[in-house]
């Protein structure tokens, strides 16, 4: 069941360069059972462009469908909750694992995220080791343990 040779695509939707740096560093350094390719889009508009293969993401070779999306909430133009809603109501995208990754502790955001169909909600903790633990745990769960219905496999063919 676990295809350890398969490279996972992680789409990081994050407007903050520091946060992207931190998360990509964690993904690179933590010892996972699988490999990652990390794709970084800088706001909600670009995220939808990527997922729907628009603008500069039109070539399917450059825009493979991600195994997992890390989605910030507070972003200019289109915020994470709007992106989440679009993904989860989209016929071919709705089964993508989408994890909200935000500094917001606002309870309303948490509730809304789950209501809109987020798979998990991670708070950006300042302590790197804590963050590392959370990422490792959640990624392992969603990419190894959890079995989801058809992961939009038609898209990546």
């Amino acid at each position: 069941m676990i295809d350890s040779n398969k490279k996972h695509i992680v789409l990081v939707v994050e407007d903050d360069a520091d946060d992207f740096f931190l998360i990509s560093r964690i993904l690179k350094t933590v010892d996972f059972k699988f490999k990652f390719d990390i794709i970084w889009v800088k706001d909600g508009l670009e995220a939808m462009d990527y997922l729907l293969r628009r603008e500069k993401w039109q070539d399917p070779a450059l825009s493979p469908l991600p195994s997992l999306i890390l989605l910030d909430i507070n972003m200019p133009k289109k915020n994470g909750l709007e992106v989440l809603k679009e993904i989860k109501t989209h016929e071919t995208l709705k089964n993508l694992i989408t994890i909200i990754f935000t500094s917001s502790k606002n309870e309303l955001n948490i509730v809304l995220s789950y209501e809109l169909g987020a798979n998990s909600y991670i708070h950006k903790s300042s302590e790197i080791d804590q963050l590392e633990k959370k990422i490792k745990l959640l990624f392992s769960y969603w990419l190894e343990v959890a079995e989801l219905p058809s992961r939009a496999s038609d898209h990546s063919s």
Binding site: D18, S103, K124, S126, L131
Partner: peptide, 17 residues
């Protein structure tokens, strides 16, 4: 609650690194 907290979080994260 938000804007001032963000840089602080980064300072802590990067000093960890």
């Amino acid at each position: 609650s938000h804007d001032l907290q963000e840089p602080l979080r980064k300072i802590i994260s990067f000093s960890d690194l």
